[in-house]
Nucleic acid binder design. Structure first.
Length: 476
DNA sequence: TGAAATGTTGGGGCG
DNA sequence: ACGCCCCAACATTTC
């Protein structure tokens, strides 16, 4: 066989970037590289990629393809089968990829590894999407941490700082698989109804937009991050979560540049942000050690919890028509933009699980479908955290009051007015409690309660008491 | 990374 | 002048 025909396959997964991609760098340094992406969802039983994620992925792949001189090779179907064909058609020298940690991705990896072992093909995987490998951060008993605080302390204090990010390779020889008829547009990524046209204008997707978001965040938002991050009307968050999920930016790049920015004046802000990045790690590690947590309560005593199955309430929550302005604003932000401010995510999640007494899995499923940053680890763990059944979870009796939360974190009502235009004329005094406004005030604001904006769909006090009762029914 | 209920304190009005 | 009561304002406990 002619040695010149030998190719190295680099399998892109949730690492859709060229910079700080150790496996890709190694591949292009060793020879001609055939970059591939496999859309492999058929075997996924739970949590097939949601609509918003698929929309994001479409653009992310387009961007990656441009970075790869339009040499990205697209496949659709079972990963193992795709590799079987590739091995048959090409003279494959080695196969490299970046590890992924979601249960079905691990199954894919195992199946592919087995195949490659059988064919005696060299393969190697790399860590490109976590600061610390699961299994690297363990208690002295070699167990996974069950509490974030010691996890974070140990991870920072006892382990080396995350490695420095790598630059993008400067030279590369890329190969197109000429036998393959598929391209990005042939994947089932964009639905027929173009619900996403508005989103197209809200997000710039790809590796260089991700870098731009990061530098913009460092310059304009990080300096007041600690103070501002809880206020949804203030642009204070990094907006990096979706880029991190698909790997258009690596956590190492983010970690490293935040640390570089963090002078003593910014220390509090830098620390607060790095802590959030560490929560992401913590959740990935949890998922790694307990893959069932996407649908199973981490605390088994919650298995008997008396959740209500109420389609009417669930739908009202999904559509942002509960009658509680901060809840509805958040749910509409999600629907319109594919994201939701972190503080508001906690408020709407508390409302669904506690005031509506609806199963956290229903909330997780909705978020999974609608969030552009939908991430199995963060989504599942955060829902369990709010519901009280997770690792290091909020106590069940911590029930957010949507009126008080709105008064506290959207005091001027800017966020609410933005996402609920039908309330925008309401005076601030009644903006958080429209049902308390007199008829004349409502009229003056052009509101017909029950018509143009809903009457509260559940009673706060009664639902709170009901939730506490349900909690007590679990016993200790 | 709550909220409500309950407890405590201290200033001021008032008999 | 003094004690009593009221009630913010704050602290603690409970869910």
């Amino acid at each position: 066989m002619n040695n010149n025909n030998r190719v190295i396959i680099f399998w892109f997964r949730n690492d859709l970037r060229l910079s700080d991609n150790p496996g890709f760098s190694q591949a292009v340094s060793e020879g001609k590289v055939m970059p591939i992406y496999i859309f492999d969802q058929e075997s996924v039983e739970l949590f097939k990629m949601g609509s918003a994620s698929r929309w994001w992925l479409y653009h992310s792949l387009k961007s990656l393809d441009r970075s790869l001189q339009e040499k990205l090779n697209i496949y659709h179907g079972c990963s193992q089968e795709v590799f079987k064909k590739l091995l048959h058609l090409h003279n494959v020298e080695a196969i490299y990829w970046s590890r992924c940690y979601e249960p079905y991705q691990r199954e894919q990896e195992d199946a592919v590894s087995l195949l490659l072992q059988q064919h005696k093909i060299k393969f190697q995987y790399f860590n490109a999407s976590l600061l610390w490998e699961p299994g690297q951060i363990l208690t002295t008993n070699r167990q996974a941490y069950q509490r974030f605080t010691p996890f974070y302390g140990e991870a920072i204090l006892q382990n080396h700082a995350p490695r420095a990010p790598l630059p993008a390779p400067t030279t590369m020889v890329l190969l197109k698989d000429t036998n393959n008829p598929l391209d990005i547009d042939s994947l089932p990524l964009l639905s027929k109804t173009s619900w996403y046209t508005k989103m197209d204008s809200l997000w710039a997707i790809g590796e260089s937009p991700a870098q731009y978001e990061l530098s913009h965040f460092l310059k304009t938002r990080l300096p007041l991050y600690h103070k501002n991050r809880d206020f949804p009307a203030i642009p204070s968050t990094s907006r990096l979560s979706a880029y991190l999920h698909f790997g258009e930016i690596s956590p190492h790049q983010v970690w490293h540049s935040v640390q570089q920015e963090t002078t003593k004046f910014l220390k509090k802000d830098g620390d607060a942000f790095l802590r959030e990045l560490a929560w992401r790690e913590f959740f990935y590690h949890q998922l790694f050690h307990f893959p069932k947590l996407t649908w199973k309560n981490v605390q088994p005593k919650f298995d008997g919890f008396p959740w209500c199955h109420n389609e009417v309430l669930l739908k009202a929550w999904q559509q942002g028509k509960t009658g509680y302005p901060i809840i509805d604003a958040g749910m509409r932000e999600l629907w319109q933009t594919g994201t939701m401010h972190n503080r508001v995510r906690m408020i709407v999640a508390s409302f669904l699980t506690k005031n509506m007494l609806i199963d956290w899995r229903d909330g997780a499923a909705w978020f999974w479908d609608t969030l552009v940053d939908a991430d199995l680890a963060s989504n599942s763990c955060n829902w369990q955290w709010v519901a009280g059944c997770g690792v290091d979870a909020a106590p069940y009796f911590r029930i957010f009051n949507p009126v008080l939360q709105a008064e506290k974190f959207d005091p001027e009502g800017i966020y609410i007015r933005h996402y609920i235009p039908e309330l925008s004329q309401l005076p601030k005094k009644f903006l958080f409690t429209p049902w308390l406004a007199s008829k004349s005030i409502l009229e003056g604001a052009g509101i017909l309660l029950g018509k143009t904006y809903p009457i509260p769909i559940v009673d706060l006090q009664l639902s709170r008491e009901r939730a506490l009762e349900a909690y007590h029914s679990l016993g200790k």
